[in-house]
Structure formats: C-alpha cells, structure tokens
Amino acid sequence: MVFILGVNFNEHKLVQKALETFYALGPQTSVRILAKYSIHPRAKIGTLPPKVITALTAELSTMTIENEARRVVQDNIKRLRDMGTYRGRRHAMGLPVRGQRTRNQIETAKRLNQVERRG
C-alpha cells in the first residue's frame, strides 16, 4: 500500500489510474504528470521509487484538485446566483440550466445543479 497525497493505493494499481481518482484530474493532466516524472504509462504504483512518490505528492499538492476544485465550482455557481442571473436561479432551484425541457429526464440536473454542489 502506497500513500499519494494522503490516499492509500494498492501496489498493483496503474499510476495513471491512481492519479485519475482525484477529482479534477483527468487523462489530459495525468499523462502530462507521468511524462514530467518519466513514468511510463504502464507503470504500477508498486514499482515507483519512494522519491518519485514524494515528488508526485508534492506536485499534486500544488494543483487545484479535490476540495479546492469543488470549491471553485461552488464559487462559480454562487457568483451566478448572487448576480441574480437565470443560470444562478436555475441552479438554486435544482433545475436544468441550459434550456432543456423539464417535463421529464431531469434527474442529472436535480442531482448536480445545487448551490452547494458536491460532485
């Protein structure tokens, strides 16, 4: 078991997959991080030397990921609401924002469009 940024990963997990478990860190970013530390795409967590693990943790701690990234999204929604825009209001009501019909099929909007958005 290896800790990256306080998260425990199995040694057999691919490094790229492990990186992509962090919120707001997708494939575009993960391949660049791998290239930066000369980790080949098929490398598993267990094969990384401890030096690289600490470097990865340091790298990730400088990025806006996880709660910081969530806060950015929340701030954006809050800004819209405070300005009193239509999009802000729709977020507050938990309804679709971009003109979709609301007769049915708005489960995703209900789940995601909140002022205190979680995911």
Partner: peptide
C-alpha cells in the same frame, strides 16, 4: 516511440 519527454 510511445514515450514522452518531460515537456510532453
């Protein structure tokens, strides 16, 4: 090759 440099 399929490898990438540090600058990607």
């Amino acid at each position: 090759s399929d490898y990438r440099s540090a600058a990607f």
